[in-house]
Design a binder for these strands. Structure first.
Length: 554
RNA sequence: UGGGGCGUGGCCAAGCGGUAAGGCACCGGAUUUUGAUUCCGGCAUUCCCAGGUUCGAUCCCUGGCGCCCCAGCCA
């Protein structure tokens, strides 16, 4: 153990695996990530597949990527491509093990027939409505279907006709014969196959009956030799059923283990809601930088390492937990701080004129790309008598703790001189439109000769050389910690989650290319939008702000 | 009120009978031409509550209380 990697904190799944390996119950670790291709992956999925791939990696096993495509009416190819790209983006590799539940449709059909022959499954011809009624409630047992005791031959014949397409959707269904009085609703003769005359993205029109999740998932795991089938808590009640099918079929038995799904404050995670945000145009698409989707985060500028680190940090448990968004943001800053080149950009410009600096002089200052990493080199930054600073860095009547610019106050221009504000120019409305300052020309790269301290440092840009670019300021999509707490989660939408400003940036930034991330000093991290930027005309997305203790003081 | 789970500091989370890891947040202080970063230091006599077993319990037992999930021909 000579690596500098932080120690991985253990979790209950790791403990189970370690024990199984030690006792000989298992001799290898095979996991799988089983997304349904009916939407884009979000940060919650990242927690799941980081866990699955991470476990496989740590125990020298492997992790499969298997699409759970048993419901043709909701699934599309567009999503299977995107999902693979997302998983790869995070750096995981399933090798040869790309699978689809639909790869097993033939086998599943045979197994269904096997169960019918064993008297463990039957064709029910009740309507969905009748089935629902007869299922009982949480406190009342269910009632056997009048079709429950059909002869095996009849079941076989009916199921065959279902397969052939002789019946319309919804007229018959294959159910497992278990126990209508079970306190576990999942065991009250669960559906195995339904009739769906729908085109499947992979099997086309070959089938008009499709297996239910419960009759496909465990078997897929079994076929692939998955040893640990890790899923979320809501499937805990399905485990007895998962085990029942495996046992009745007499096939290899994987172990299902459930963990708590991720809840992130100020965001929603349900696919239904994310889809609605997209279709109702509350966001610009699945890859809107405000979306908790992986494509959204990528476009926002979140490095994959930040997401992995986040998944590592939050741990794995069985209690419903809420992680604060700030934890994710902190992971993003942690990564970006190390590598992002520093630049100067003014988002809300206020003109500053230097009284004592020659109007025709332009200095090319050498400034570091990263103060802590000299290896990252330096760049030239033009300085002249006319600059722009951020309006937030000037106050006409500053409070005691404000150590930026104000009338008669001194401040250091980042990477340049110390200046003093000598005159405040206002327009007819009384708004400050310009500051006249004097520069101490003997303070470039050094402190004032008389030794007095200047605490404030502000960023700036030289007026003549500055370039105007579009900057998109993104903030949390929702105002409330838990948007679901609102009557309608859409009411919790943050109207200020997206603002566009025209910023003035140092000239070199025009050459920035899609996906590049910079730190605009004292402001935040910004990434060149990969979708709408043009060559020589970058659009910057605010990835995350810098921590701002002054903002907290205010 | 049937069944399945969960309850460790503000938020996560280790611990699995031997006297409360770690991260984030927070509070101090140092360094700093980013009020950033970095660096030091602080931060649960206590593990939902009440009993019990034990020399000793967050860990075992009993009883409460609280929270989450389940009645799709979705996954």
């Amino acid at each position: 153990m000579s690596t500098s990697e932080p120690p991985v904190t253990s979790n209950f799944i790791r403990t189970i695996i370690t024990e199984d390996l030690a006792s000989g119950k298992r001799n290898q670790v095979i996991t799988r990530f089983p997304p349904e291709p009916n939407g884009y992956l979000h940060i919650g999925h990242a927690k799941s597949f980081s866990l699955n791939f991470g476990l496989a990696e740590d125990f020298g096993g492997r992790c499969h990527l298997r699409f759970d495509d048993t419901n043709p009416v909701k699934e599309e190819d567009e999503y299977v491509e995107a999902i693979q790209a997302d998983v790869r983006w995070l750096g995981f590799d399933w090798g040869e093990h790309l699978h689809f539940a639909s790869d097993y449709f033939d086998q599943l059909y045979l197994w269904a027939v096997q169960l019918i022959k064993a008297g463990k499954a039957y064709v029910d011809s009740q309507t969905a409505e009748q089935m629902r009624k007869n299922r009982g409630t949480l406190t009342e047992v269910g009632i056997d279907s009048p079709f429950r005791n059909r002869r095996i031959e009849e079941n076989l014949e009916l199921f065959d006709k279902m397969k052939k397409g002789d019946f319309p959707d919804g007229t018959h269904i294959l159910r497992a014969k278990i126990d209508m009085s079970s306190p576990n609703m999942n065991l009250r003769d669960p559906a195995m196959y339904r009739i769906l005359h729908a085109h499947h993205h992979r099997t086309g029109d070959k089938w008009c009956i499709y297996p239910m999740y419960d009759f496909a998932h465990g078997q897929g795991d079994s076929i692939e030799g998955v040893t640990y089938s890790i899923c979320t808590l809501e499937f805990e009640d399905h485990r007895p059923l998962y085990d029942w099918f495996i046992r009745e079929l007499g096939i290899f038995a994987p172990q299902q283990i459930e963990f708590a799904r991720l809840n992130l404050s100020y965001t929603v995670m349900s696919k239904r809601k994310l889809l609605q945000l997209v279709t109702d145009n509350h966001v610009s698409g699945w890859d809107d930088p405000r979306m908790p989707t992986l494509v959204g985060m990528r476009r926002r500028g979140y490095p994959p390492a930040a997401i992995r680190s986040f998944c590592e940090r939050i741990g794995v448990g069985k209690g419903a937990s809420w992680i604060d968004l700030s934890v994710l943001e902190e992971c993003v800053r942690e990564q970006l701080n190390k590598s992002a080149l520093r630049r100067q950009a003014v988002l809300n410009p206020l003109k500053v004129t230097m009284n004592n600096y020659p109007a025709d002089k332009i200095e090319e200052l050498d400034v570091p790309n990263h103060p802590q990493q000299p290896d990252l080199g330096t760049r030239k930054l033009p300085f002249s008598h006319e600059l722009y600073i951020d309006r937030d860095d000037f106050m006409e009547d500053p409070p005691k703790k404000f150590f930026r610019l104000g009338p008669d106050r001194e401040v250091r221009l980042r990477n340049a001189y110390i200046i003093k504000c000598e005159e405040v120019i206002k327009d007819t409305n009384g708004e400050v439109v310009e500051l006249r300052c004097s520069a101490d020309l003997d303070t470039l790269g050094k402190n004032p000769a008389d030794g007095h301290k200047v605490k404030g440092i502000i960023h700036w840009v030289s007026a003549a050389q500055a370039e105007k670019v579009e900057v998109r300021l993104y903030d949390r999509l929702f105002n409330q910690e838990n948007p679901d707490k609102a009557d309608n989660y859409l009411d919790a939408l943050n109207p200020e989650s997206y603002k566009v400003v025209s910023a003035l940036v140092e000239p070199g930034l025009l050459e920035a290319t899609a996906g590049e991330t910079f730190q605009f000093e004292r402001v935040g991290y910004f990434t060149v939008d990969s979708k709408e930027s043009q060559p020589g005309k970058p659009i910057f997305n605010r990835t995350v702000t810098l921590r701002d203790t002054w903002a907290k003081l205010k």
